[in-house]
Design a protein around this nucleic acid. Structure first.
Lengths: 230, 230
DNA sequence: GCAAAAGTGTTGTACTTACACCCATGG
DNA sequence: CCATGGGTGTAAGTACAACACTTTTGC
């Protein structure tokens, strides 16, 4: 009885596709790969793969992320499920999209070669297979909402950042200029960053102070009833 | 080659579960049903069902909605995909949750009997099967975001509403009191409602004016670069 | 005439925006 | 000494929050 209630129904392939964001040279980038199989072989595509019986959706996405980045503990969030009957012209596949924020500076360039992958400027994306362009747009909308209401922006950096680079990152995500003084005022008012004793000297003669996100300060900030907001 | 790329992978049951919200007597309600099959037979559950080969995720959800409400054109939005391996103790099932806003006043009460369904006050929900309580919480978070940034609140009403009932609805969704004058001022400032020539006289001797959402006015409002916000 | 919900403006406060100059340093 | 990006404060305007009384009418 119970078994037939379940098993008399159709079964489907389930894929996870990852929208991998990185920040480099004042621009937001997306990691894409050439699709290795027919149909649409060699077309640009998100990093994806099929879910297996013994793993959760999240684990399936983490598997993909690890395969293409060799990094663990990457920040990741579900975008949504895509289930049009004809979305994948090779078979009936339901795909669940996730976006991920990776530290592009510490990225292994060997991997991009190995997988025929490439970083694209978000403003200059090629046409992608299936509904992947839609997934990217949805991911970007969600990212915009999240980076302005939660302190996830710091996942783009490897522990330290300058205020100018942080501002550049927000500007490229929103495609809008921010006022430098107002931006710094807002960050200072939240008091969730540590000013480090070191400076970044690559981009200016004077040198820019490095900062780091302080999770303890952020906890106190939340306890005081405040909300992150940029 | 291509066929085996797809078909050598695991296949899964996919369900859609619907979080059906309604508004009645100043309270937000949720339509629940007693699960008709083992395991957990007779426990309270969201309205759900399996996706079939020839339908999209959205269509599968619309099918469920229609089955339990007999209404078409219901406002619906995806909440997300739930894919823990043990989330359904009867089988491996990935479920995609959708929330829906229905006009509870025009609801066919025969249907609730037929499906062993019942409306529950959102503040007094029973324990639900599987991860359905989590889905409800996620749906509520999303609903709160959406009703404050898009004019979807009006889907709770059958074309007309009083400003007091609209305020009551926002208050029950956010579980917060709103200031009556500020609330009305905000709505008036957007100029997206029509004041109807009729009054609601059930809840007061004086009678409260009915209003209706005007999509044309809303279009102009958007064109002027403004954004809905409550 | 009174109870019960509908309807209506003003003022202070907090937040957001706009804006321009000096600083430190490497070359 | 100069070119380059780093760093800083104030004033005006806007949006939000707080608040109390009059109106209508069925009973």
């Amino acid at each position: 009885m119970s078994a037939s209630y379940y098993q008399n129904n159709d079964h489907f392939l389930i894929a996870t596709d990852c929208i991998i964001f990185g920040f480099h040279k004042k621009e937001l980038h997306l990691l894409l790969t050439r699709r290795p199989v027919e149909p649409l072989k060699n077309e640009w595509s998100l990093m994806g793969g099929f879910m297996e019986e013994n793993e959760s959706l999240t684990q399936a996405a983490e598997k993909i992320l690890y395969r293409y980045t060799q990094q663990k503990g990457i920040y990741m969030e579900q975008v949504g499920a895509y289930g049009e009957t004809d979305r994948d012209c090779g078979a009936r596949v339901v795909s669940v999209a996730f976006y991920a924020l990776v530290k592009m500076e510490s990225f292994n360039t060997m991997l991009t070669q190995q997988f025929d992958a490439r970083w694209f400027n978000i403003n200059n994306l090629p046409e992608l297979v299936f509904d992947h362009n839609i997934m990217v747009n949805d991911a970007l909308s969600l990212l915009r909402y999240k980076v302005s209401s939660e302190p996830i922006i710091f996942y783009f950096f490897d522990g330290k950042f300058t205020l100018s680079s942080l501002q550049d990152l927000y500007e490229t995500i929103f495609q809008l200029p921010f006022d430098k003084r107002n931006f710094r005022k807002k960050l200072a008012s939240m008091d969730i960053l540590d000013k480090l004793a070191i400076k970044e000297t690559e981009n200016s003669r004077r040198g820019a102070n490095y900062y780091a996100f302080n999770p303890e300060k952020y906890k106190s900030f939340l306890k005081a009833g405040k909300r992150f907001s940029i």
